[in-house]
Each structure stands twice: as C-alpha cells, then as structure tokens.
Computed example of a mutant assay.
Amino acid sequence: MTVLIAIPARYASSRYPGKPLVELNGPDGRKSLIRRSWEAAMAVRGADRVVVATDDARIADHATAFGAEVVMTSTACQNGTERCAEVAAKLPGFDIVVNLQGDAPLTPAWFVEDLIAGLNANPQAEIATPVLRCDGAMRAKLLEDRRHGRVGGTTAVFGAGGRGLYFSKEVIPFTGRDYADDEPTPVFHHVGVYAYRPAALAAYPSWQVGPLETLEGLEQLRFLENGRSVLCVQVQARGRQFWELNNPSDVPVIESMMAAMG
C-alpha cells in the first residue's frame, strides 16, 4: 500500500486571504501556517510522499524555500478535493491519497494514520475522514462562534459502522442541554483531513455540485450527494488540543494551544 499526502493551499481564501503564509508563534519560533501543516504531514508514519498543492507562485516559492515538494495546480479548482484530484492525476500509482488541509497545523500524526487504517479495513468506503468527540468546552466554543457569525469548525453525524450521514457548519446534532467542560457530548468535530481511493477522487471533479455542498460550502458533501460512501473514523485526542485556522481570530487560539503543548 502506497500513500500520497497532498496539502492543498490557496492564497485567495474568501474568509482569510493569504492564510497559508500567515506566521504563527510557537515554542519553535515563528513559522508559516503552510510550513507547520507540512511538518505535521511529514510526521505521519507510512506516508510515501508529501507535496504542497497550490496555484499561487508566492506559496510555491515559500514552500520550496523551506524544503517542501510543490505540485502546481489549476486556478479553476473549486476546493481542496479537486486540487488533490489534479495532484493524483499528475502523480499516479498511489493506493491512497490523503488530503491534509493547509489550515490544520495541529493535526496529530495518529489522526492520519488511523484514517488510513480505517480506509484499509473498510473496502466499501471510497473516502474516509476523522471525527473527534467534543467535550462540553469544545461544544461551547463552537456554539459561541456560531452566535457571533463565525464558523469555528464543522460537525459530523454518522450511523452504524461510521457511515457518514451529514456534515454541517452548524453544531449538530441538537441536544437541548448544556454540558460540563470536561463532559463528553454527542457532538463530533469533523477534522479536515480526507483519505480517498484514487478512482473516487478521479471521478469527483466530474460530479455536479449539489445544493447541500453549495449551501454549506463543504466539499465532502459532494460524495454524499452523489451516493458515495463516506467513512467517519473516530480518533482520540490523547490529551492534545485541536483547532483549525479558519478566521484571523483563530491565530491566538492556535498559538496558545501550541504553547500549551510545548
């Protein structure tokens, strides 16, 4: 089994232009978001190749300077999955293609390793993605972001065997109660990492964008809207904090988490 990790990164983010080049302070100094995401990918055991996928020369030059392999992709890519499909077409022959998004520098290596193992163990699944159970504090943070019109993260609901049912930028499912900060909740935070089988990834750009993907702005919904099986793999935090950089206000949150982790 051979594994390719692609890190899609674009400069023209609608919510945060230039996001991949934003520098984050950590115990190891100041490093860009894309560099920290690349370092997270390089720590994954079993990955045969790691590339940064971008359509922007500024990102490409920066990534090359710190030692990353870069694959240039089209400006027509609508999301990271389409960008990964381009990479897979240019670098064929891998059994699994992983999309480790460039805004998730705190992604633990074992999230990706568990994801790859989950896809291998479920031959009927065409795509796998990790989900992390929220405690009361995380759920409260997600709800607070929504009250202020921000998208702090995506949540997922799934059925038997981890079969994905829906993903949303709203906090689902509705529970009707509050939880203590350290209390487990029924809400699962969707971690923005995907592992695809090459055939499904190659077909993805040809599928019509459906109403749910349009409304939510979530690329994984295209799989569900086209009747494809998405596997949700439950991962464990093991004491690590996890957060994605979606908005400028997330920068101090992630820096604080990095400081706490040392």
Rank of each mutant, 00 (worst) to 15 (best):
Y204E: 00
R147Y: 10
G192Q: 07
Y179K: 02
Q220F: 01
P205G: 11
T175Q: 10
G149C: 04
H148P: 00
H190T: 03
D181L: 08
H148N: 14
H189Y: 15
A160C: 04
S206F: 00
F167R: 01
K169C: 13
V209W: 04
L218Q: 08
E183I: 02
P173Y: 08
L143H: 03
E144L: 06
H148D: 11
R163N: 09
D145Y: 01
Q220T: 12
F188Q: 05
L212I: 07
D145F: 04
H189N: 15
G210I: 09
P173L: 11
A199Y: 06
Q208C: 04
G159K: 07
A202W: 02
D182I: 01
R197S: 00
V187Y: 05
L212P: 00
L212S: 10
P198S: 13
W207H: 11
F158I: 09
G153D: 08
G217W: 09
A180G: 15
E183V: 02
E216P: 07
D181I: 01
E219Q: 08
P211H: 10
G192Y: 08
F174Y: 11
W207E: 13
V157A: 06
G192V: 10
E144G: 03
V187A: 07
G164Y: 03
T154V: 12
V171S: 13
A200Q: 13
Y179M: 01
E170Y: 03
H189L: 15
H190C: 06
L143W: 03
R150L: 15
D182E: 05
L165M: 12
L143F: 03
G162W: 12
G153V: 09
D178M: 12
F158S: 07
G153H: 07
F223V: 09
Y194F: 06
P205A: 12
D182S: 05
E219W: 00
G162R: 13
Y166L: 12
A195Y: 01
P186E: 14
